[in-house]
């Protein structure tokens, strides 16, 4: 209960939480809220570049599609991509990080040196290269992002595990004869959970941003997908006169990323076992 009270007092984190809830709500129910379902994918050239109005809140794009509807529908895609990428990155990075952190020897060294190599190359360039190789499409963009994002988890978990390995309670468990599996999964993992959760939350925002960037650079989603990054790329050449076509998808990205970042920062302060109380 202390946790919840403390969290309620953290205004930025609560704002972040509200944004994330809204975004998730839109992702789930977005297709029902869409005011012009037929103008999501189908073009209507007679309505090209109508400015924001009562009928088209965010205006229409170069093909006469309703931008508001497309932003709503695009939410689901953005979230799915982010979730998948972060989940895959965790699935690769966390076990490697725990293993490398807990053991010593050439295998642990190898894992960490590979991680360092990945971290030394800017993620976006690496992702671009992988996505190019794999061919155009959302699937290859996701693969590229997951393959380049796991080293961040690996590094974080590695550092935390290294610290925990020499902590007294792990030593005590070794002394009691606990097996390595038990120590790693029952004790080390929960104790590295908080940095993982924080990193994952911030990573969600980051991945949405990077997906949009890949879409913008033309290696992500392909037309006519309502991808936010793609939408910005498509309307880029009509700037600044038709400002709404790029602005609203941009704001969608901004708010979603901001929400995840604020929430992640709040979590960082929150996840501390000392706040756990047996009674209350």
């Amino acid at each position: 209960m202390l946790i919840i009270r403390k969290f309620l007092r953290d205004v930025p984190a609560m704002m972040g939480f509200a944004i994330i809830c809204t975004v998730i709500g839109i992702a789930v129910f977005g297709s029902m809220l869409v005011p012009h379902p037929h103008l999501v994918f189908e073009s209507d050239l007679l309505r090209r570049f109508e400015p924001p109005s009562a009928e088209f809140w965010f205006g229409t794009d170069n093909l006469g599609r309703d931008i508001f509807s497309r932003v709503l529908v695009g939410t689901q895609g953005a979230l799915t991509v982010a979730l998948t990428v972060v989940a895959v990155a965790i699935a690769i990075g966390v076990p490697l990080g725990i293993y490398a952190g807990y053991t010593t020897g050439w295998l642990s060294e190898l894992v960490m040196r590979v991680t360092d190599m990945f971290l030394a190359v800017p993620q976006i360039i690496l992702a671009l290269a992988i996505a190019q190789l794999a061919g155009r499409g959302l699937g290859s963009a996701m693969t590229a992002l997951a393959l380049t994002y796991w080293p961040f988890f690996c590094r974080t978990v590695y550092a935390e595990t290294r610290r925990l390995r020499h902590s007294v309670f792990i030593e005590a468990l070794e002394g009691l004869g606990a097996s390595r599996t038990r120590i790693l999964f029952a004790h080390v993992l929960p104790n590295v959970a908080s940095p993982i959760i924080v990193r994952a939350t911030v990573g969600m925002g980051f991945t949405i941003l990077t997906t949009a960037l890949l879409g913008f650079l033309g290696v992500g989603a392909t037309a006519p997908s309502p991808d936010w990054g793609l939408a910005i790329a498509e309307s880029r050449e009509y700037l600044p006169d038709m400002w709404w076509a790029a602005t609203f998808p941009g704001l969608a990205i901004l708010f979603t990323v901001l929400g995840f970042n604020l929430f992640g920062d709040g979590l960082r302060d929150l996840i501390d076992p000392k706040l756990r109380r047996s009674r209350s």
Binding site: S167, V168, F169, E171, A172, L173, H187, P190, N191, P273, K274, R276
Partner: peptide
Amino acid sequence: QDPGAALDPW
């Protein structure tokens, strides 16, 4: 020496 630290905080 520090039996408190020898317990998993979670």
